[in-house]
Lab assay of single mutants.
Amino acid sequence: QRITLKDYAMRFGQTKTAKDLGVYQSAINKAIHAGRKIFLTINADGSVYAEEVKDGEVKPFPS
Rank of each mutant, 00 (worst) to 15 (best):
M10F: 11
T41R: 06
K54F: 14
A31G: 03
E57T: 12
E52F: 03
R11Q: 13
T41C: 08
I32T: 03
G35R: 10
R2T: 10
Y8E: 00
T15R: 14
K6F: 11
K30N: 13
E57Q: 13
V53A: 08
D45P: 03
L21G: 01
I42Q: 06
I3M: 15
R11E: 11
A27P: 02
R36N: 06
A50P: 02
A50R: 01
K16A: 07
K54C: 12
A18I: 02
L40C: 09
H33S: 14
Q25G: 09
K19H: 12
T41M: 12
V53Y: 14
K54M: 15
K30V: 10
H33W: 12
I38N: 00
G35T: 05
Y49S: 12
A31D: 02
F61R: 02
E52P: 01
A31F: 10
D20K: 07
T15M: 14
Q14I: 15
A34E: 15
S47M: 07
K37W: 08
Y24S: 15
M10T: 09
L40W: 00
N43Y: 10
R2M: 09
K16H: 04
F12L: 03
S63I: 09
G22R: 07
F61K: 02
D45L: 04
Q14Y: 15
V53L: 12
G22E: 05
T15Y: 13
F61Y: 12
G22W: 04
Y49V: 11
A44G: 12
K59H: 13
K54S: 13
G56E: 07
A44N: 11
L40A: 03
Q25E: 15
D7H: 06
K37N: 13
K30R: 13
R11C: 08
F12C: 04
A27I: 15
R11K: 14
K30H: 14
P60T: 07
V48K: 03
S47H: 08
T15I: 13
Y8N: 01
D55G: 12
Q1A: 11
L40H: 00
D45Q: 06
A9E: 05
K16T: 06
V58Y: 11
P62E: 05
D55I: 05
D55R: 09
G22Y: 04
G56C: 06
G13C: 02
A27G: 05
A9W: 07
L40D: 00
D7N: 07
Q25K: 15
Q25W: 12
R36T: 06
N43Q: 11
Y24N: 15
R36V: 05
I38M: 01
A9P: 00
Y8F: 04
M10C: 10
T17F: 02
D55S: 08
S26L: 09
Y24P: 15
A34C: 08
Y24E: 15
A50L: 03
S26D: 12
V58T: 14
R2K: 13
K16Y: 02
F12P: 00
F39K: 02
K19M: 11
I28Q: 00
I3N: 03
R2P: 08
S63G: 12
R36G: 04
A50K: 01
D7Q: 09
Q1W: 10
Y24R: 15
E52K: 01
A34W: 07
E52S: 03
L21W: 01
K6E: 13
Y24I: 12
T41K: 06
P62C: 05
T17R: 01
Y24F: 09
G56N: 10
F61D: 02
A50D: 00
K30T: 12
V53I: 14
T4Q: 07
S47Q: 08
V58E: 05
I42Y: 07
R11L: 13
V53C: 10
K16V: 05
A18P: 01
Q25P: 14
A50Q: 00
Y49G: 06
A44F: 09
G22S: 05
A31N: 03
K37S: 13
I32A: 02
Q14M: 15
A50V: 03
K16W: 02
Q25M: 09
S47W: 05
N43K: 12
E57D: 11
E51M: 08
I32F: 03
K30D: 15
I3Q: 06
T4S: 15
A31W: 12
L21K: 00
T17W: 01
D45R: 03
I38D: 00
D45E: 06
I3A: 05
K59A: 11
R2E: 05
F39V: 07
K54N: 12
P62T: 05
G22N: 09
E57M: 13
K19D: 08
A9I: 14
N29W: 15
A34T: 12
D7R: 06
A34M: 11
L40M: 09
L5P: 00
V48I: 12
K37M: 13
I3V: 12
T4F: 06
D20N: 05
A27S: 11
T41I: 15
I32C: 03
A9M: 10
Q14K: 14
M10Y: 10
G35V: 04
R36K: 07
N43E: 10
G22V: 03
I3R: 03
I42D: 01
P60A: 09
L40F: 03
E57N: 11
D7L: 07
A34L: 10
T41L: 09
A27K: 07
E52N: 01
K16G: 03
E57F: 13
I32L: 11
N43F: 11
L21D: 00
T15G: 13
F12Q: 04
Q25F: 08
G35C: 07
K6I: 10
T15L: 15
H33D: 13
G13A: 01
K19F: 09
D20V: 11
D45A: 05
R36E: 04
I32N: 02
I3K: 03
T4R: 08
A50G: 11
A44R: 06
F39H: 05
G56P: 02
R2N: 07
A44I: 12
G35N: 14
T15H: 14
S63P: 12
Q1S: 11
G56Y: 06
R11H: 11
A18C: 04
I32Y: 02
G46T: 04
D20T: 06
Y8I: 01
I42P: 04
V48H: 03
Y49N: 09
G35E: 11
D20E: 07
K16N: 04
F12R: 03
F12D: 02
N43H: 11
R36S: 07
G13N: 02
V58I: 14
M10A: 15
T4E: 10
V58W: 14
F39P: 00
M10V: 10
G22A: 05
Y8Q: 01
N29V: 14
G35P: 04
Y8W: 04
I32M: 07
F39A: 03
V23I: 11
K6P: 05
I42K: 04
I28P: 00
R11T: 12
A31L: 14
K59Q: 13
Q1D: 12
Y49C: 08
L40R: 00
V53N: 09
K16L: 03
G13E: 01
V58R: 08
N29P: 07
S26C: 12
E57G: 10
A27R: 08
Y49T: 14
R11P: 01
K19V: 10
K54D: 12
E51V: 12
L5F: 02
K30F: 09
V53S: 07
L40Q: 00
P62D: 06
G35I: 03
R2L: 11
L5H: 01
I32D: 01
T41E: 07
Q14L: 15
F61H: 02
D7G: 06
S47R: 08
V48N: 02
K19I: 10
K59Y: 15
L40G: 00
K37R: 10
G22I: 03
A31R: 01
D45K: 04
E57R: 10
V58M: 10
F39I: 08
K59M: 15
R36M: 08
A18Y: 02
A44L: 11
D20W: 03
D7K: 06
Y8L: 01
N43V: 08
N43D: 08
Q14N: 12
T17L: 06
A27D: 15
P62I: 05
R2H: 07
A9Y: 09
I42M: 09
T15N: 12
K37F: 11
T41H: 09
T4W: 09
Q14F: 15
G35F: 06
V48R: 03
I42L: 09
A18H: 02
A27F: 11
G56W: 05
D7A: 10
T4L: 08
N29D: 13
L5I: 06
K6H: 11
M10K: 13
I3T: 07
V23G: 03
K19G: 08
G46A: 05
R2C: 09
A18W: 02
V58L: 11
T15D: 15
Q1L: 13
E52Y: 04
V23P: 02
R11V: 09
Y24W: 12
Q1Y: 13
Q14P: 13
A18D: 01
R11S: 07
V23C: 09
A34N: 10
I38G: 00
L40E: 00
S63V: 11
K37Q: 15
G13V: 01
T41S: 09
D7W: 05
K54P: 02
K54I: 15
